[in-house]
């Protein structure tokens, strides 16, 4: 900076330029004002407000008072459900993200050689564009004790199916299965596009060198689409840490707290217990976790994501 300053042209020219620069600056200010105000009003202000609220006892009705870190210490020490919610969220993410990526990737490769690729893309994408609430309601019916799944396991295998969503051992798994069905379409589209964009010259060179099957997949194709893989993983991870709709509709967090997730915990603190301070604190912990995990992914990507073809 200092060096650049020193090599600048003499004073008069500098003043002239700075006058025009100043005018330009005013124009720029004019142009960015709407978006800065919008960002400030609808993003920064609520975010800051949430931080402030997390240090208050802030009931929906009545007066609020400053309580320091007591909301946070309650979450980690007193709240019997918060740590369970963190655990459930990580179990959900740990199952959902890999399954989602594998299914999406598998189907994307499978349809990449098909004549009906476009048709399949549309078909597999349908669950993703159907409202999640509708999907969840339908799956809830499927899982019922006298529902379709129970009927066929009984008829085909003679096995008496559990009451999937009322049994603490199966409820979260049932939600994961439904979520994978609903969520893989979006990633499949991304992967499918990336697969179609793989440079033929590289693939050809690989075949000439004798790379086939699993080796070609792991060494050539996956590295070629690694930017898409990275993008899909990051986005899926973020959205799965925020899982709410399916759980809310299908299990209501029960039985017990076996399917209570972190966002569910925020919702219950804020809109069921009406303790907005506690909800804000809980939401902030979720935000911090997402930030850390995403940051780790970005650091880790240097090892496996290849941007140049």
């Amino acid at each position: 900076m200092a060096v650049a300053e020193a090599t600048r042209t003499p004073a008069p020219a500098k003043r002239r330029r700075s006058r025009s620069a100043r005018r330009e600056q005013w124009h720029a200010t004019g142009f960015i004002t709407p978006s800065v105000v919008g960002l400030g009003l609808f993003t920064l202000f609520p975010v800051v407000m949430a931080v402030v609220m997390s240090f208050y006892k802030w009931p929906m009705l009545g007066t609020h008072e400053f309580v320091g870190f007591s909301n946070f210490s309650y979450l980690f020490g007193g709240d019997p459900d918060f740590l369970a919610a963190v655990r459930n969220t990580f179990v959900f993410t740990g199952l959902f993200v890999p399954l989602n990526i594998i299914v999406a990737l598998g189907l994307a490769f499978w349809i990449s050689t098909s004549r009906f690729q476009q048709l399949f893309r549309v078909l597999f994408f349908i669950p993703s564009i159907t409202p999640a609430v509708a999907n969840a309601v339908i799956w809830k019916l499927l899982y019922q004790p006298d529902g379709v799944i129970a009927y066929y396991t009984e008829k085909l295998f003679g096995v008496h199916a559990p009451n999937f969503l009322a049994d603490g051992h199966t409820a979260l798994l049932a939600v994961v299965v439904m979520s994978v069905w609903q969520g893989f379409g979006y990633n499949m589209i991304i992967f499918s596009a990336a697969i179609n964009e793989m440079p033929p010259s590289v693939l050809e060179a690989a075949s000439i060198d004798g790379a086939t099957g699993i080796r070609k997949l792991l060494r050539i194709q996956l590295p070629l689409i690694s930017p898409s893989l990275f993008f899909a993983t990051v986005m899926t991870m973020i959205s799965s840490l925020q899982v709410f709709t399916q759980v809310f509709i299908m299990t209501g967090g029960g039985p017990g707290n076996s399917t209570e997730t972190m966002v569910m915990n925020v919702y219950q603190a804020g809109f069921v217990s009406r303790d907005l301070g506690l909800a804000a604190a809980s939401a902030w912990i979720l935000f911090a976790l997402i930030l850390i995990i995403t940051a780790v992914q970005f650091v880790g990507q240097k090892r496996w994501v290849h941007y140049e073809h």
Partner: peptide
């Protein structure tokens, strides 16, 4: 909300 989550556990025998 607590009824819905915890009484169900009793009904299923958990």
């Amino acid at each position: 909300q607590l009824f819905s989550q915890y009484l169900l556990q009793a009904y299923t025998g958990a």
